[in-house]
Amino acid sequence: MKQSDFLNIVLPFKDKVFRLAKRLLVSTEEAEDATQELLFKLWTRKEKIGEYKNIEAFAMTMTKNYCYDRLKSKQASNLTLVHSNYKEKETSLENKIEYRDSVNQVHQLIQNLPEQQRTIIQLRDVEEYDFDEIAKIVDMQPTAIRVALSRARKTVREQLTKKHNYGVS
């Protein structure tokens, strides 16, 4: 396989790989390293790429596994879950602060979810994968993914509502 063919296959989902890595590893530098590592691994397997039914799902699975390995390592003991893709149009400073606080609260609530729910909510609600693609990435049945996603969303919604209603009679 030529380099140009490889790039045509891999580049369309490179940003999704980075966003998943960023969601799991937090650090932009760690996410860049994870993305580079994934691209290197795919390059070393370039002759076998045609054998995979869905190379994007395969790449996302590899990224998820690499990130989990990094999080388990001693070097990554200081990494936490943060997401900074939130951008907004021009609004007042007060609204910007309020939005930022709300987004940070949601990210903190997502961070407190079990690892599986956190990954599923990232893949479905941020990366916008369909359930079949998520099933391949996390090796679960689509029905189980729907249940886990529903529970994750419900937990985040209830905790956010509880925080917003704190002190209100």
Rank of each mutant, 00 (worst) to 15 (best):
A76N: 11
I9M: 08
I9N: 00
R118T: 02
E98G: 06
S150D: 05
E115G: 10
A76I: 07
R100P: 02
Q105Y: 03
Y66G: 02
D33L: 05
N95S: 10
G167H: 03
E133G: 10
Q159F: 01
M60F: 08
I137K: 11
I121H: 01
K96P: 05
R23S: 11
L81Y: 09
T44V: 13
D69P: 13
N65M: 06
F131A: 07
K89D: 12
K154E: 11
Q111Y: 10
M62R: 09
F6C: 04
I137Y: 08
K22Q: 07
L25N: 01
H107I: 09
K89A: 13
R23V: 06
K136F: 05
L109E: 14
R153H: 02
I137N: 06
N65H: 05
I9V: 13
T155C: 12
K53S: 09
N78G: 10
A135W: 08
Y86F: 14
A144I: 01
S77G: 12
E158A: 11
S84D: 14
K48P: 02
V156M: 08
K16T: 05
I49L: 15
S77Y: 15
Q36W: 00
L149V: 08
D5E: 12
K72A: 13
L11V: 04
L123F: 07
L20I: 06
Q3S: 01
Q122T: 10
F131L: 09
V103T: 08
Q75M: 04
A76W: 11
K87P: 09
D101Q: 11
N8P: 06
E51D: 13
Y166K: 11
K162A: 06
Q116N: 02
K53F: 04
N85E: 14
N85C: 05
N78E: 05
V126Q: 12
E127K: 04
Y52S: 13
H107N: 14
H83P: 00
A59P: 01
E94F: 15
N54E: 00
Q141F: 07
L79D: 00
Q116V: 06
R100S: 14
M60R: 03
A59N: 00
A31F: 00
T119A: 15
F58S: 04
L149T: 07
R118Q: 12
A76D: 07
